[in-house]
Design a protein around this nucleic acid. Structure first.
Lengths: 153, 153
DNA sequence: CGATATCCGTCAAAATTTGTCGTATATTGC
DNA sequence: GCAATATACGACAAATTTTGACGGATATCG
């Protein structure tokens, strides 16, 4: 399919939200309307339910996505009442490749590149080297793009 | 899944074969053992069945792939006995993007970029611009790599 | 006209993604 | 301590996409 999964899309939506909240907390103008109650103090920690509501993503799915981003150290999680997630890293330091590695089934360009694949061609395959080298190029490309670059356009 | 489809893999195998045959016909050394009968004259036109045998790809599938490459002007088809396919273009002039555009369901990074998609977020989506711009970057990246570059490593 | 090979629509099986449910664990406030 | 809230995680059904196979039409050559 050669496409980003819904999970990665949802992650981008959530990270954009976090990133915009971050901007507001620094007194800067966000890139999107956050629909904040201007009288209430800015809530840096946002629950999965809040994010589901504001991104219009299915709660169960985006909740899982947020858990993964948390386990990767991109977000920081807090239990309990008024708990939720907030950014743990500057998005300058997180690459598109890192996001894909967290949420896509694999970042490899083809299934046959996976170590535990069952390709019955194995030694007979004539394009192992071409595929491997193209794969490296693609990986490096995605490693060269930060989420900051992607989200703040 | 963010992966190249089997069809594209098979296409690369076939094109590598054609490319190597081309090299031999010019008196150069191919990058793979072609298992040619050195007494027989070099057959520039290769049937779908031959290609299926030599790439170990399922005949029905690679036959369809070859038809598509032919319709895109990358290969040239000949009907009848001793018919088959041969290269119609220099692989320097064909990009990875062109191959994906021919064989993948779409070259877009996400489904929502497709004009005839049924994304129910539509106007509510907060990452239209980021996704669109990342998509352009990816497309340009794949347009910058020729099949010559990929196959002759 | 018969043998060979490309062309092309349809469709079932296999694999993958997407979304849902149930339950366990951790934190906070009373 | 206990109730309310929120994250963590495994299992699984539904939906979508890919993969491969079948049948038959069309074109070329001797």
């Amino acid at each position: 399919m050669n496409k980003l999964s819904k999970k990665t899309e949802y992650a981008l939506m959530a990270l954009k939200l976090f990133s915009d909240i971050d901007l507001v907390s620094k007194g800067l103008k966000p890139h999107s309307d956050l629909h904040l109650n201007s009288n209430a103090p800015l809530q840096m920690t946002v629950s999965a339910q809040d994010i589901a509501d504001r991104t219009h993503a299915p709660y169960e799915v985006i909740a899982r996505v947020l858990q993964v981003l948390s386990s990767r150290g991109i977000l920081k999680a807090e239990y309990g009442l008024f708990g939720g997630y907030q950014l743990a890293k500057n998005l300058n330091e997180v690459t598109v490749h890192e996001l894909m590695d967290a949420l896509e089934s694999s970042t490899d360009l083809t299934k046959c590149l996976n170590s535990e694949n069952d390709c019955d061609l194995s030694s007979k395959c004539t394009i192992v080297s071409p595929i491997t080298q193209l794969n490296t190029k693609v990986q490096n490309f995605y490693k060269s793009i930060s989420l900051q670059e992607v989200l703040h356009v």
